[in-house]
Design a binder for these strands. Structure first.
Lengths: 229, 229
DNA sequence: GCAAAAGTGTTAGGTGTACACCCATGA
DNA sequence: TCATGGGTGTACACCTAACACTTTTGC
């Protein structure tokens, strides 16, 4: 292969993944104790270097699968972070993604193998390098997205109840929502399907399970329908 | 220096800049005839490789200054594009930024030196690699930003009239806006200062010049004020 | 029968949108 | 004086936000 850009300087590129999960009314990020130098043992986001013949998305999928055992996750790019000194060891440009996963599907064995922990995003404490900033930027972006697109479902199991969904949105926005208004808006979107089954784990009466109807969502998306919540 | 990540594979990283300017009711992007192989002579966005000790922003500033003679531009990152085959010569990961500039300040001599042209963003024609996609993504992002933040001013001279401002917003949203409603919203933001001077170039009566009051904007921003238009 | 969570409508106030005429001036 | 673009206010429709009681059922 001809090297057209031979005189240019290649740089290490990594992907940092902010893996988010929802449980008991709290949004958690998967945080790891770093396995190699420098700063071995310090707390860090999950990441991996981009390989020679690997698209960025592929790197993310690889990293996510490695730590969670899940593929086919919902993910979105947050941006590239390239300050010369952001990694104290060498220059590394990092492309940041967040991924939303269903904690039910999560492989606990892998978590322990990797020494990873779920930590409430409001109490992560100090992370290495600029990882705190990456996390903050991600949460801001997630909030903005959630306002206009129904991506929250990716954090829930396939079957979920409306109280669960509301509690998720309250966790994202960090404020209580009015139950009636919330339900009204959700129903107006018309992208949920009610099942005949109830979840009785948190009340005697039980709450109906719903599931997300992707086909209907895609239809309405094309028509420019508004999904703001 | 110790090479901690020695076994990893470094990659060429470039920055692609979408330089936008506004004139005569149209938004234009600066497009260049590529000066080197491969695809020499084809139309392309402006770009440059990230150097060894250069932050990403610094690369953008360098490229923008080189082609426009302006520094201190408003810029925002669009994202990283890293598909293995996006550059047909070698693997290059590109971080994309857009920059908004005031075409009045623009250095025409440099434009000609570099064989660059201003082209209406709706009629750019075919660009190399994935540059058409980068441009589309950028315009979408610009629209979203404009809806919530008053960044349009960066495309205008320091002094501008309300008809000019409205025409700019119409170009961004690609639809006519109601004059009275537009002015009402702008005045409600309370971030413009009316000067005693008028622009008589496009009417006999003349339109008042205004300028953007950055201090007041910053104040209101902190208070969480809403700038949607 | 009672505690505890699920489910359900209405109203008032505010916001967005549509719309038409007078003004200032140079030619 | 007239043609041209600049500048101004109001009314109605719609949407958002506030609010309280009934239902179900396991214990």
């Amino acid at each position: 292969m001809i090297r057209f850009y031979q005189q240019e300087h290649p740089i290490l590129v990594s992907v940092d993944c902010i893996i988010l999960g929802f449980k008991d009314g709290e949004i958690n990020a998967l945080i790891i104790k770093r396995k190699f130098e420098p700063l071995q043992g310090e707390r860090s986001l999950l990441g991996g270097f981009v390989r020679e013949n690997e698209n960025l998305d592929a790197t993310v999928s690889r990293v996510v699968a490695e730590y969670t055992g899940i593929d086919n996750v919902y993910m979105e790019q947050v941006g590239a972070y390239g300050d010369v000194d952001r990694d104290t060891a060498e220059r590394v440009i990092s492309v940041v993604y967040y991924a939303l996963i269903d904690m039910q599907q999560f492989d606990e064995k892998r978590r322990k193998q990797h020494n990873a922990e779920w930590i409430n995003i409001n109490h992560v404490g100090q992370l290495i390098f600029d990882h705190n900033r990456l996390l903050e930027d991600t949460i801001r972006l997630l909030r903005r997205r959630t306002e206009t697109q129904p991506i929250g479902f990716n954090l829930l199991p396939e079957k979920f109840t409306l109280p669960q969904l509301q509690s998720l949105y309250e966790a994202i926005y960090q404020q209580p929502l009015d139950k009636r208004n919330f339900r009204k808006k959700v129903f107006e979107m018309d992208i949920l399907e009610r099942l005949d089954e109830k979840d009785k784990s948190s009340s005697k009466r039980g709450a109906y399970y719903y599931k997300f109807n992707k086909e209907r969502y895609d239809q309405r998306l094309e028509k420019g329908f508004d999904f703001s919540l």
